[in-house]
Amino acid sequence: MAVDPKVDSLDQLIHERRRLGIVSALAANESLTFGELKAVLKTTDGNLSVHARKLEDAGYVKVSKGFEDRRPRTEYSLTDKGRRALEQYLAKMESIVNSTRDALER
């Protein structure tokens, strides 16, 4: 069976499970700290840093570093580009689900 062209054109950057998690968690909040993201996604420091960096490089996620009570604090938020990418990804996932449903009903 041929691979659905819709699947081929998926945004691989957020198709990856951990990055999809980061983008989804940020879509539900104005911003999240490194610690909050880590707790929501149940992942390690290293893992989160690597994937968050990829999203930052792609311009999907904005990182702001600052200090609070003299302790470093890293905060992540979704950029407009990141939000659009998630919306497009969601639309594609929905269209895959719907087209299969249509095929089953036919």
């Binding site: 989804s24 968690a25 929501v40 969601l90 996932m93 895959i96 689900v97 299969t100």
Partner: peptide
């Protein structure tokens, strides 16, 4: 397979958003 993967991804997005908010 695509259908079930897509459904799983949608569920994952929803669950992550819920637990984050």
């Amino acid at each position: 397979d695509h259908h079930s993967e897509a459904s799983k991804n949608l569920a994952f997005i929803r669950e992550t958003m819920e637990s984050a908010s």
